[in-house]
Structure formats: structure tokens, C-alpha cells
Design a protein around this nucleic acid. Structure first.
Lengths: 134, 134
DNA sequence: ACCGGTACCTAGCGTTACGTTGTACCGGTA
DNA sequence: TACCGGTACAACGTAACGCTAGGTACCGGT
């Protein structure tokens, strides 16, 4: 169905995972569990693994195989220098986008207060008086 | 290019346009110009038109054709009740996601300062007990 | 012997933004 | 007149991303 969340996660999920890895190295299953725990309940396991493969191939993380007594060995991902640079870029992009969107929300709150037709100056004023409804 | 921005806009651009339309009805070319003016300089014209077609087909907007003395008639989009509901959903999703991400940023700033355990954080405890090598 | 939890991986699908191209109308310039 | 650029819309294929839906492998408890 492509819920709002699904589409909004595109582009941000990578940054979220990088941020998690910045705090401390982790493996896929752990990251998935943590995200689910933090509210992303519907997040699919496969999504995280695919993302990890991507950021590994782009060289944002270093990988270490650690044997576990339960199941197959864990692939522990550690953020490296390139990853930190990417994370910085993510924060910059996020800051810009969040700023624009918060600006929109602020403008909306502003417009709800006034009942008086205060507007006369729109930036674009092509002023079509041609009311010819076809 | 698929810069950070491109992927991050997926899912958010629709909400942005709906928010713009909430302020006042507008037509495609105008919306594109406004977005470019507000910092989204690289935004493609075709992107906005495709998005408008989408939200029209989903019934979030009402459309009125208004002839202009320059070029073809404008398709003026007006947010309707369904659109406002969708916009509300957008704000809710955005608030949640922004909250999570800001939380990540805060945690990151926090961890750089000291080693004092701010909280147990993860309710999850999958943490490595693998100390005792297999 | 079976089920469930741990831990990993893959293939195909739907949605989205981008790049490009085309149409149509108008005013200004050569 | 003929051309160019700005206004305004639309359609096509492509790339990227997250989701669905599977699969493999190991282990302990019922």
C-alpha cells in the first residue's frame, strides 16, 4: 500500500542506520530489533539486510564476522571514515529538509489565526480575470 | 545523481506540495517556481507535474482549468477534505520520523560528552554475551 | 521429532523522483 | 515574416529504495 512511512523512510533509513552504527558497531539482526523497539514496528528484516549490503558495497562500513553460540556467525558492521562523511552529509540534507518543512508548518499555523483578508501581495500575480469556465 | 536529497524527497515532496496547496490554490508551474525559490533549486518540472497527477487521481485535490493569456490554460489545484486528511497524516508521520531522528542526533551529541550512562536505552538485550569464545 | 528463536540472504514488486522530449501559446527581435 | 525564449502542461523510460515473501542454518525446549 505504500503507507506514508514506507515512502518517507526512503533516503532516511540509511542515515538512521549509519547513526546507529556511529554509536556502536552492531549486526543486522540487532539493528532490526533496535529499530523495531524504537517505534519502527513494521520494518521488514529484509529491508535492513539489503541496506547493510548497500552501505557495505559503498564502503561506509567495515565488516567483522563474529561467531555466536546461537545460529550463524554475526556480521558486525563498524562505521569507518567514509561512513562518517556520509553521515555528515545525511545530517546536512536532513537539516535543510527539516528546516523547509518546519517552515511550512509554521506558515500554516500563522494563516489559521487571521480571519481578515490580509493578503494583497502575492509574489506571483498574473491576475487572470478571465473567468471563462470551459 | 541520486544525491541524498533525491531519495529523501521521496514521500516528503507530496506532503510539501499539499502543505503549499493548503495555504492557497496554485497551478503546477507556479508550485515548481515557488519550490525552486525556496531552496529546491534542482527540482525538475516533470517531477511536480507527475506528483500533481498522482494526488489528483487519488482525489486529494479539486482541479479548475483557468485560461491564461500566456500559454495553455492553467490547471489550478485546490486542496479538498480528503487532501486535508492526507496532509494531517503526513504531519503525523513526519512528526514521528523527525522525533526519532532528532533523538538519534541528541544521543550522538550526548555520547561525545561523557561516558556516564544516560539511560539503559535499549529495552532490548541481544547484546553480545559472546565474550566466552566458542 | 517438532517448533520457535537466532542470524543471515535473495528475487521480484510497487512507488517515487529524475531526465528528457514534445506540445501549445504568446511577445519581442532581427 | 521568421525565429527565439518564456509560460504551461504532459508522457516516456530509468534508477533507487523499501516491502513482500520466501529460503538456509544452528540451537534448545516441549
Amino acid at each position: 500500500m505504500a503507507s506514508q512511512m514506507t515512502e518517507m523512510l526512503k533516503g532516511t533509513l540509511e542515515g538512521i542506520v549509519l547513526a546507529i552504527l556511529e554509536a556502536r558497531p552492531a549486526y543486522g539482526y540487532e539493528i532490526t530489533a533496535q529499530l523495531r523497539d524504537e517505534g519502527f514496528a513494521d520494518l521488514a528484516e529484509g529491508t535492513v539486510y539489503a541496506l547493510l549490503v548497500r552501505i557495505e558495497q559503498r564502503g561506509f562500513v567495515d565488516v567483522t564476522k563474529v561467531p555466536s553460540e546461537k545460529g550463524p556467525p554475526r556480521k558486525v558492521y563498524t562505521l569507518n571514515a567514509a561512513g562518517r562523511a556520509q553521515l555528515d552529509e545525511f545530517w546536512a540534507t536532513w537539516a535543510f529538509l527539516a528546516g523547509r518543512i518546519e517552515h511550512l508548518r509554521a506558515a500554516r499555523t500563522d494563516s489559521t489565526t487571521s480571519t481578515t483578508g490580509t493578503d494583497s501581495g502575492s509574489t506571483h500575480r498574473t491576475t487572470d480575470s478571465t473567468e471563462g469556465d470551459d
